[in-house]
Nucleic acid binder design. Sequence first.
DNA 1: CTGAAAGCGCTAACAT
DNA 2: ATGTTAGCGCTTTCAG
Lengths: 367, 367
Amino acid sequence: MPGPPHVRRPATLASLAAELGVSRTTVSNAYNRPDQLSAPLRERVLEAARRLGYPGPDPVARSLRTRKAGAVGLLLTEALSYAFRDPAATGFLEGLALACEQANQGLLLVPVSPDHVDVTAVHQAGVDGFVVYSVREDDPHFMAVLERPVPTVVCDQPTGVEGVDRVGVDDRAGMLGLARHLTGLGHRRFGVICMRLAAGHNDGPASAQRQESITYPVQRDRLGGIRDGLAEVGVDWADVPVIERFEHSVEAGRDAAEELMTAHPDLTAVVCTSDILALGALQHAGERGLSVPEDLSVTGFDGVPEAGRAGLTTVSQPVLEKGRIAGELLLQRGDRNRSRRVTLPTELVVGSTSAAPRSDQRFFSGW
Amino acid sequence: MPGPPHVRRPATLASLAAELGVSRTTVSNAYNRPDQLSAPLRERVLEAARRLGYPGPDPVARSLRTRKAGAVGLLLTEALSYAFRDPAATGFLEGLALACEQANQGLLLVPVSPDHVDVTAVHQAGVDGFVVYSVREDDPHFMAVLERPVPTVVCDQPTGVEGVDRVGVDDRAGMLGLARHLTGLGHRRFGVICMRLAAGHNDGPASAQRQESITYPVQRDRLGGIRDGLAEVGVDWADVPVIERFEHSVEAGRDAAEELMTAHPDLTAVVCTSDILALGALQHAGERGLSVPEDLSVTGFDGVPEAGRAGLTTVSQPVLEKGRIAGELLLQRGDRNRSRRVTLPTELVVGSTSAAPRSDQRFFSGW
DNA sequence: CTGAAAGCGCTAACAT
DNA sequence: ATGTTAGCGCTTTCAG
């Protein structure tokens, strides 16, 4: 907060003690260890505090002394405000908040400047540990977190970081199951819409080279799951167009679908790596005059409430649970000897947006 | 966080200074005032820090010294996790996060134990100020916030607190407009579903006495707006059943509507003090076999996205804007001489859930 | 450009 | 049950 400092605290523990002619310890005890002094004395102290406008022990000074901040820091890739717009993130946050609440710990959302990289906020954060939600492997904020001498738990990505606990789901297996569902229905001509794959702003086809250098493990696994599933029925991944979007929004999904379907009007299935993108694709299909699932199958990933309402075929993951476990992993100190890894199950949800392709499309590429 | 303290920091600013044979000031400057020392020296310091595993100045110690925490505290009535479920709260949070982000300030969600009242978390919070979101006038956590010697901004409620800035909307005027819309359509037989009115768990009719002792100003104003609007056409408030719900959820709204319509099957309009409750009422109408708006008009308040999708007639308020302004009010220190009050406009949104009552119901009470 | 001195406000041992 | 002693790790005048 810019500007002049706050009003100087009117009174301190020391001044109160002096006023009362007791020691600082006694005043401190009046607040922190009521059983360490007689009730009357304690009341005298509290009464004097009220009279002098002493607001109780300063939290920061206490933190310095006790080496406990009473809060967990949360690092998000995106702008802070994004967390409240993405339903998957919201579910995660709800779970994390639940865990913090239960342990009576605060949850500090660390501001991440959307524009120029500035990790000072990570350094400033008075927290006892960090939860990192789904960031790039080479995220500078994440690096800054690792330098802090506090425990850290990662959700989703990055994976496999030394000395850091992690909770996530088996993205690859989830997508593999979904791919099998689609190939089982008879689909052979696929298109894919995915989220940001690496640093840099790429809106458009994800070249083979770009796919080689993915820095978001979750996207890597989800794409890998599709690829493996298609390989099982002989579909070559090189023939599958993959469209990447920097922004993660329904609008971006719609837009990507337009790009995809314009270049490849013969696709029978569009697989999206998130529900949000899929909802956009669904929207585009409507605009294009395609019936879903008759003319086109569309699938997502995450299982957010909106997807459920739209009847989207998707892979559902327990986001709230993920958040709660992330919090518990951080808050429950156990053997910190070696890092713990928790992988939650996903579930294939077959909705009304996937079906067998029209028979005339099934194994032909047109007349 | 329970358990043993963290690993002791491997090195401190002092130990680094000793190692290098420079003063602590110099090391401090290397981090905070790069222009105060030569580049080579600074590099030497930073290099030594890396080598010794010095993670940079301890944020808590720095906070104590500078009297700045670099974070804003957020107090919510409900359990922390609730904030992520209520779409109106989510919008507010997004706006607030935006403001914090821009000022590079953290946002600390203060845990509020749902069960036994425990305000220690408010005392522990290392923050430069508080934003209080929509709490009861006599909320003990709020009282604790007021005792802290830091600036505070209230969103919505409580209103009229000395020395505290406030941002909100004109709830009364908004509801008055909505009431006029309904009376203009010809409605005369109303029922109301409202949120929690005061401390204590009351699920059921809100007696006149209970309505006298409302401690949530927002609910007081919204009910008052309806009352005034109905009074204009001669409908006596005493004849209007008001059903209160402790929980704020679609399910609670559905349930309240059932209670209301069972006791008063002749109503032509159900006014809800929130969209969430209204969505529940809509659901109940369907279950009851009533067509909306032909058989029954249903209205909400807030203008959340879900309501828009459902075509709900409601009073829309700029929640994101409210959040942003709350943040700005706190972060922009201006004349703190006297408290500032910001009242944002609401907008009547006429959807497809309100229409004239069936003519045979219009001015008759049935045969 | 660098150093010395002086705390920020509090709590945890260890006495008494 | 209360007091004494020693810092927690840092920044900030003010001199050199």
